[in-house]
């Protein structure tokens, strides 16, 4: 039994109470988040129900949006949402995973180290730390991209990207116009500028999560590959990337979700035209941009229609996440061997 001189004691009453309270608080917040999510979905779906009854599935397959004639359908927006997100995902993944690799596998630090070696400062107490610091600085800069407000991206797209790509677009359309991708000319806002900006917006998500997943691959696995005589690229492609694939893919799915729902920048850049076209230079529209543009002028009746569109966007996002989780599961068992 505890005596006065003993240091070890059972937890005091206050400690026990704090512990219980802390656990209750964490649990409470967790449930709160879940409940809020359910309420949001419920509210939207309920608000959408009258419109769902009125317009039915034709809402999904028609191409007309005319509030004056009370004609509503969103196939062009569904197409624009998926097309812009998939394209942005392709570019964002290529650049994002490459950036993650360069930051996580020491390429950057090696380059700085080699530079320092030229001036023979590589072991200097101050300059010697530079390789690691440059690497951290670069990854912080990339993560900073995520902190730039959406509307700033939109403005940047309007005033920088569109003038920048326009000459190339003219040229591509004039010379290679027979390729459907270049089938129309860029007359200002359109799919391509939207996709470029969207790729940059989702890149930090892919890079940050990918870098984390790559850094979490145990060093001993890399050493095993090098020990067998793998080159750096062989070690990366045969061991590090497959081992980190689950995490990297998780980041990609998250980025896809972000791309599907991105609103402000797209509303400014995509052109807001009810058009279905594979041409990169054609104006288009997305569900999120439609909602942003239509809500301010919506009559109470229109709100129900917009809620229907919001529900469709929710369902698409949900399906993407479920499919993503499923693919992660599937590729993991392919790559890692069967679990017992």
């Amino acid at each position: 039994m505890p005596t006065e001189t003993q240091i070890s004691k059972p937890p005091s009453r206050t400690q026990a109470i704090t512990d219980t309270a802390f656990r209750a608080l964490c649990q409470g917040f967790t449930w709160l988040v879940a409940v809020i999510a359910v309420i949001i979905v419920l509210k939207i779906v309920l608000a959408a129900l009258p419109a769902v009854r009125q317009y039915g599935l034709g809402f999904l397959s028609g191409q007309v949006w005319d509030p004056n004639k009370k004609l509503y359908s969103i196939l062009p927006e569904i197409w624009g949402t998926l097309y812009s997100s998939v394209l942005a995902l392709i570019f964002g993944t290529a650049f994002g995973v490459a950036a993650a690799l360069f930051l996580a596998e020491g390429f950057t630090a090696d380059a700085v180290f080699a530079l320092l070696k030229i001036v023979n400062l590589q072991f200097h107490p101050f300059w010697g730390k530079l390789p690691v610091q440059v690497e951290n600085l670069l990854s912080n800069l990339i993560e900073l991209l995520a902190a730039i407000p959406s509307v700033v991206y939109g403005l940047w797209g309007l005033f920088v990207i569109i003038p920048l790509v326009r000459p190339a677009c003219h040229w591509l359309h004039a010379d290679l116009g027979w390729i459907p991708l270049f089938g129309t000319d860029l007359s200002g806002p359109g799919m391509l500028p939207a996709v470029i900006v969207l790729s940059i917006m989702i890149l930090p998500t892919i890079t940050a999560i990918g870098r984390g997943a790559l850094l979490a691959v145990p060093t001993r696995l890399r050493m095993a590959a090098y020990g067998l005589g793998a080159t750096r690229w062989e070690a990366i492609f045969a061991v590090t990337l497959p081992t980190a694939s689950r995490g990297i893919f998780g980041g990609i799915v998250l980025a896809f979700g972000r791309a599907l729902g991105e609103t402000m920048a797209l509303a400014m850049l995509v052109g807001n035209a009810n058009v279905i076209s594979v041409s990169l230079f054609s104006p288009a529209n997305t569900l999120a941009a439609l909602l942003a543009n239509a809500f301010p002028e919506a009559s109470p009746k229109d709100v129900g229609v917009l809620m229907y569109a919001a529900t469709v966007l929710l369902v698409i996002t949900l399906l993407v996440n479920v499919a993503g989780a499923y693919i992660v599961q599937f590729t993991a068992s392919e790559l890692e061997g069967e679990k017992v």
């Binding site: 050493m223 095993a224 061991v239």
Partner: peptide, 16 residues
């Protein structure tokens, strides 16, 4: 390293 094999302190099989 292709001619000289190595086994490490911690078993390190690949996740495959």
């Amino acid at each position: 390293r292709r001619f000289i094999g190595m086994v490490f302190q911690q078993p390190n099989p690949f996740a495959t």
